[in-house]
Design a protein around this nucleic acid. Sequence first.
DNA 1: GTCTATACTACGATAGAC
DNA 2: GTCTATCGTAGTATAGAC
Lengths: 196, 196
Amino acid sequence: MPKLTEARRELRRDQIVQAARRCFVRTGMERTSVADITAESGLSAGSIYAHFTGKADIVRAVVQDSLDRRAELVAAFAASPHPPNPAQVILQLAAAADPDDARIALQALGEATTDPAIRDIVGTTIDRMHALFRASCEAWLVKSEGHAADAAAARATRLAGHLVAVFQSLLIQNAFPDGPGAVDATAVADLVAAQT
Amino acid sequence: MPKLTEARRELRRDQIVQAARRCFVRTGMERTSVADITAESGLSAGSIYAHFTGKADIVRAVVQDSLDRRAELVAAFAASPHPPNPAQVILQLAAAADPDDARIALQALGEATTDPAIRDIVGTTIDRMHALFRASCEAWLVKSEGHAADAAAARATRLAGHLVAVFQSLLIQNAFPDGPGAVDATAVADLVAAQT
DNA sequence: GTCTATACTACGATAGAC
DNA sequence: GTCTATCGTAGTATAGAC
């Protein structure tokens, strides 16, 4: 029965990841030392290196975790029995804003610029989000708007592109709450709704 | 006549900034050492510290330079005797894509998350871009569409918000040429044009 | 598995000659 | 102003006891 020990192992990893996440939000990925992470997690260097191969490994885990969290939010839209229309999706995304997640995501985008491993995670996550938006829009077009399946698929793909773009802009805006709020979610929602 | 020497001084600074820029694009802001910058610039450590107070100072200068370059591009639109309509602005922005500038900008956004000095530069630049977009749209509404001045001002502000958002999405897309192209500039242009 | 202590490296910044 | 050489420090990762 290695299940129990493996579950505990995963729990420890998560403990480290969450501590690292807090450090990254406060100090930035590159400028937090593993000493910072040990202090924040309450563990020691030896313990951490027993669960991760090195700092880069921790960074990857934190980025993956944060982006997964965001994607699951979108996945919930698509799985809903009453799929929201694109305008509602935008408003819900804006409402579900978590500044910490947004900051991690922005740092990840910056890192993706030079680090292939991070770029990979970011790239596949964007792909996944696009697919999820597509699924959500398609379900809405078919179920609520009565579109034919093939016509809905084509429209959904285009709509998903817009939603990814809006999502990215909201990301920047959410990361800086006191900053210039260029994106008016309601206005964008109206814009997208008008195209329906 | 300190003019000449001051010009030469500015030239040296620019030489260092451009070398640093190349390093940042290749290796990332945090991971390039000042040794890398000296090697790339052909200068020495001593010389560099005669022109900048430290690495953070160089980073600030590079970010400021890159963002200024982008803003000037937008300023040209507003100053044009025949101001482009919003859809054209989007298409021109997409056409003028420089991957290196986009990567620097993304790294800057990531840094802005934790570094107040960079956040300041990024914030004021976004404000400036918003104002420039506003001016460009207002000029277009008045000159080409015959709107009244006060009505144009209100509409221009909203349009500028959309343009900033699209600009930010294009930034992410431009930084990863082989990545998932979520934003279809033509489609977005159509969308904005439809709202006219 | 977890701790403390430490080895080794790389970096930012300065000193001093020219 | 620019160079070379170097100082001090901070950081990653490991060793070895428990």
